[in-house]
Design a protein around this nucleic acid. Structure first.
Lengths: 301, 301
DNA sequence: TAAAAATACTCCATAGGTATTTTAT
DNA sequence: ATAAAATACCTATGGAGTATTTTTA
């Protein structure tokens, strides 16, 4: 038995007329008679009760028709689905985010995705450092990473979507809270709350900024993420230097001030160069105009 | 696309090995390579990522595999179902019953059917007179009738499964309630509760019995069915003459007594001769030893 | 008698076979 | 070096076409 038999039978059963069914199927009438006969022989049941003047569907035919229609519908669904997946319009993307990007960029990304690729499901893994994301991209555990260059290791392509200045976060009652702009050098004597961990790109940018301003910061406390860091700042335990996108995480008792003389950090979309799954490709393409490149694309070996 | 493609793909995807899949499918390996290539070309998607050393299923392939399996399962179900229907082992039989048969014979019939043909559904239409059942059998509204011959009209075959004597139903305090056997002639002066309607076979048998005993009954009341008739008897409104199977409908205040000199009535399984649907045929066959013929089969034109 | 399904017969497209090559580990 | 998929090529089955017959309403 082949799909041909089911297609032929379904059409004949629906029209109750071999000639018209043959027309619809673009085959000659004897081909139909033959195929239906084959089908009935294989099943050992009459599906159609036919005289030369009328064709009726038997109870067995009625039942088989229902199944045949299910089958043909399932085939159709399979074809469509497979094609959609092939075009990257259906499936599950796992997207990783660095700390603050989860707050500032995730909402826009999610909204854009559900609007443009409604059949693509989004799975989010937040609070991943750049190095962790690169590993997971290579391992296929992530499809796309929202991270801060430079990327570590080989095989990762990325596109910078934002160049953010570092800004100052101080308690609302801090002496610098009143200044519209603060210079890095003003922070020489301040106790710092910094990000913890060796691999944090922001942490490195902050330390570099201090070095460039001619001092080594008094790192009084460390926090595992931006939210915790700001909480410590609100508690008056020190000042924080964080990416501007942290402003989308307002916390009572913390004010943000522009920082003159501080480094910038970048935010980029990254993916594994070797496995350009159609899903990731279309998702990246769909995100092109929501997150345009902030600089010409760059690749790192 | 044909089922062949789905069968081949499913097997390769399950084994992840063209050679072993070819063995399982009893075809040569190049045939598989070719068929899968065809399928992928038609879909425009790679379903299998293959090197000469390993075969992996792509996400599109994963999805398509699931659909293919659904399809193959549905085809199988369709084949099995159609065959079962062809053999009459699946489907819905509508069975009609005359008044008392519903109480005396329906339980046994239903039990036998669910046990022997568990996939056959039973739809019961009770309280149908013989003439009504014959019409419905001819019209295809009933598959089988449990009725009292003689059948009316042409095209109905039947098999007598029971020859029942008529018995007497009297109030428990009636003068005849004490007799072990009552003769028809003893009823000459009794008020009768009879079945209503012109076509009732039992009613005619009762009237004939009275005529044979030399009297015309005093038909004081009429009831639309055995249950109602017995209720009137219990109420002391008269005596009833009913088929012996009415004994399976015990009612407080009514006692049954054998009747000497009364006619017998038959109970038969009847079906439409022209449309011997496999369902009806197997059901009748399955009922053969639960309801053996009480006399050699008879046909009426 | 006429419409429509079945049958008879022919042809070529293609499914599937064998032999061989290519490729990745 | 070798297992395994792809390629090349060939054969024959059978799907589908045309012409015709059969059937029944």
């Amino acid at each position: 038995m082949e799909l041909r038999h089911l297609r032929y039978f379904a059409t004949v059963a629906e029209t109750c007329h071999f000639g018209r069914a043959a027309d619809r199927l673009h085959v000659a009438q004897p081909a139909l008679s033959h195929a239906i006969r084959q089908l009935e022989d294989e099943l050992g049941v009459a599906l159609l009760a036919r005289t030369t003047r009328q064709v009726r569907v038997t109870p067995a035919g009625e039942f088989f028709l229902a199944e045949a229609q299910r089958v043909l519908a399932a085939v159709d669904a399979g074809v469509r689905g497979a094609r959609r997946i092939g075009e990257g319009q259906l499936g599950l993307v796992r997207v990783g985010f660095t700390g603050t990007a989860a707050f500032s960029h995730l909402p826009r990304l999610a909204r854009a995705l559900t609007q443009r690729l409604p059949r693509v499901e989004l799975e989010v893994r937040a609070d991943l450092l750049t190095a962790e994301q690169c590993d997971r991209l290579r391992g296929g555990l992530l499809g796309i990473g929202v991270l801060r260059p430079p990327v570590t290791g080989a095989g990762i392509d990325y596109r910078v979507i934002e160049v953010e200045p570092l800004v100052l976060a101080v308690p609302a009652d801090h002496r610098l809270a009143g200044e519209p702009v603060v210079a890095m050098t003003d922070l020489r004597t301040e106790p710092f709350v910094t990000y913890e961990g060796r691999d944090s790109v922001v942490r490195e940018a902050v330390l570099r900024s201090c070095r460039d301003a001619g001092f080594t910061p008094d790192r009084r406390h460390e926090a595992p993420g931006t939210a915790a860091l700001l909480a410590l700042v609100a508690g008056g335990l020190g000042v924080g230097v964080v990416p501007a996108s942290a402003r989308s995480l307002p916390l009572a008792g913390v004010v943000f001030r522009d920082l003159a003389g501080a480094a910038t950090v970048e935010l980029a979309l990254a993916w594994h160069r070797e496995t350009p799954s159609p899903l990731v490709t279309t998702v990246l393409a769909a995100l092109e105009d929501v997150f345009p490149s902030a600089r010409p694309p760059a690749a790192v070996t």
